[in-house]
């Protein structure tokens, strides 16, 4: 959304640039730009020991510092990878003397969720969601809500495939107001609840990730935003197996990630024997179509009779 504004805080570094921190004196060799967002740019950079890291740099000290704080508190959670690990926090002074705060973190190699699902098959969606729900559960247990959950912030790390989030800019303490969000994923925007951070805020956004995958061009709110969402879930064929679960998430009926995960798990286990049930349901559907065909035939007959009645009346009077 923010790219619709003309002013932003991009820091443009050309590949080959070497930046050295003011405090810790570590040097980074910039390789490529990984992305640009509302609060700055992320680059792929090489440390002096040849290790590749992701480097986020901005001119907004406050926002960068806040993100570092979040990464630090996520790192305190033992034995889990709730966020990318944080390596270095420093300032870079450019030639003109301008100060840019930056931090480096683990470079998560992987595919975008969208391209992963396209190449490996949509049936992965449910499984990846279950993985993410496990992480979300732990995050929520720690008193945090991810906030800005969206398809662009998710990456499928390779071998074995695991869905991970990469931008913690919106991570907010439970009970506070969501720090950063994207309209399409925000339950406030869809008039489906407040912008106060609670676990169901993330679950709503997760359901929107599925919807965004099903409708790559997104869609408008319409006059009844929450109705629009339910209709969109219904009419997306690739979301059919998850319909009930997504609807519950969109209506805020899950109090925890654990509950949503359980439902999703049930769905995946039920749909295990894939091929036969599909044929069965096909057989079951056929009589229905025959019945409706009969109905249609009956209907046209009645219309014909009425029409001829009218014609007869018209003709004789």
């Amino acid at each position: 959304m923010m790219n619709q504004t003309l002013k932003n805080s991009e820091v443009n570094l050309k590949p080959g640039t070497v930046i050295t921190g003011k405090w810790n004196k570590k040097s980074y060799h910039i390789h490529a730009c990984l992305g640009q967002g509302a609060i700055g740019s992320v680059y792929l950079a090489k440390q002096s020991d040849q290790k590749m890291v992701a480097l986020k740099i901005s001119d907004k000290t406050a926002s960068i510092t806040t993100e570092v704080n979040v990464l630090k508190s996520l790192a305190k959670v033992q034995g889990s990878t709730l966020g990318p690990s944080l390596f270095d926090v420093d300032d870079w002074i450019d030639r003109r003397g301008q100060c840019y705060p930056f931090y480096t973190m683990e470079y998560v190699r992987g595919n975008e969720l969208r391209s992963f699902l396209r190449s490996r098959g949509d049936q992965w969606l449910g499984l990846l969601f279950i993985q993410l729900l496990e992480d979300l559960e732990r995050l929520h247990q720690q008193g945090w809500v991810f906030g800005d959950l969206k398809i662009d912030n998710l990456i499928v790390a390779s071998s074995p495939p695991k869905l991970r989030w990469i931008d913690v800019g919106g991570t907010t303490q439970i009970g506070r107001s969501i720090k950063e969000y994207t309209e399409f994923y925000d339950r406030g925007y869809w008039q489906a609840g407040s912008r106060k951070a609670d676990p169901s805020y993330d679950l709503f956004a997760l359901a929107m990730v599925a919807l965004h995958y099903a409708y790559p061009n997104q869609f408008d709110r319409g006059s009844h935003p929450s109705k629009t969402l339910i209709e969109k879930v219904k009419s997306a064929r690739l979301l059919a197996p998850y319909q009930d679960c997504l609807r519950k998430a969109l209506q805020g009926r899950y109090q925890s990630s654990e509950a949503m995960k359980k439902d999703l798990n049930k769905i995946l286990l039920q749909s295990q024997p894939k091929r036969e049930p599909v044929q069965n349901s096909g057989k079951r559907q056929r009589p229905i179509t025959k019945f409706s065909a009969k109905l249609a035939w009956l209907e046209s007959l009645i219309i014909l009779i009425i029409a001829s009645l009218f014609w007869i009346i018209y003709y004789f009077i």
Binding site: W23, T61, A62, T65, T66, N69, V89, P101
Partner: peptide, 18 residues
């Protein structure tokens, strides 16, 4: 100012601001 502080302390100050 906040910007002139070392990153470590800056984090603590930002928490207060937040």
């Amino acid at each position: 100012t906040i910007d002139a502080l070392p990153p470590e302390q800056r984090g603590e100050v930002m928490e207060v601001v937040e």
